[in-house]
């Protein structure tokens, strides 16, 4: 333990200097990865096309994604995209699977059109770009 007041003062100054150096380094070159872009704002913007088309009284929307259309294929962002969709469309409840009325299909896979034909026949589909299709199904 240091007893000399000057040495103690120097020690506390050294701690602050070390914090400055290591802190600045950590802020400039973060140890944990930073997302390349603001994907939440981007998704919000993408979903605004869906929001505009949904009538005011709609409280529940169905949701299918590539994970449903290609169940064997890896889909690491699947759950994030589902939550992003829910975040964008709140207070409407976005339920995985089909719902009476309106269904969002989030898939850019080429097999999507065939899958829709076989699984959700009779729904009127509108492609909104960015892999989004909005279906209006009869109850």
């Amino acid at each position: 333990m240091l007893k000399n007041p000057l040495a103690r003062r120097a020690l506390s100054a050294a701690l602050t200097a070390l914090a400055l150096a290591l802190g600045l380094n950590g802020l400039l070159f973060p140890l944990s990865p930073v997302p390349p872009s603001d994907y939440v704002s981007a998704w919000d913007a993408k979903m605004s096309a869906v929001s505009r088309r949904l009538p005011a009284g709609v409280t529940q929307v169905g949701y299918f994604s590539e994970a449903d259309i290609l169940p064997g294929a890896p889909a690491p962002d699947d759950y994030i995209e589902y939550y992003l969709t829910q975040y964008s469309l709140a207070p409407r409840i976005v339920q995985r699977g089909a719902a009476d009325g309106w269904v969002i299909v989030n898939s850019a896979a080429p097999q999507t059109a065939d899958w829709l034909q076989s699984h959700l026949p009779g729904c009127r589909a509108e492609k909104l770009g960015g892999g989004l299709t909005l279906l209006e199904c009869q109850p």
Binding site: P35, D38, V40, S41, I80, L84, Q86, Y87, A90, P91
Partner: peptide, 26 residues
Amino acid sequence: RALQFSHGYEDAWFIWNMAARFLYRA
């Protein structure tokens, strides 16, 4: 950083700001 990711990260948007959207929009 905060202005770059203005909705916050996961947890922030999918729990807290999501809840705020329900309170505000519903």
